[in-house]
Design a protein around this nucleic acid. Sequence first.
DNA 1: GCGCTGACTGTCA
DNA 2: ATGACAGCCAGCG
Length: 85
Amino acid sequence: MSEFSNKVRCVVKNIPKGEVLTYKEVAKKSGNPKAARAVAQIMAKNFDPTIPCHRVIRSDGKLGGYNRGGIVAKRAILQGEGYCK
DNA sequence: GCGCTGACTGTCA
DNA sequence: ATGACAGCCAGCG
């Protein structure tokens, strides 16, 4: 695992309840503002149970995806935490 | 080292 | 506003 992936996990893990960061923001905080795609790649295949990946969304305001119950579960979790769009 | 893939993003028609 | 295109990056075979 490279340092970048580790950073990504750390950033996502630190997202407060009720808040959501875009892949771009996460990538930026991880050290690579242009690695939004890489972030998505890490989340998509190497999911970490300690990370609330459901708090990571697209810059469009769309949810993107979820590998742990589907986009539906993700939406439900966000709404449950207070993120209502 | 090369090429493919993907939960992305920004720009143009 | 919507769809198509190109650019970028890390992980894997």
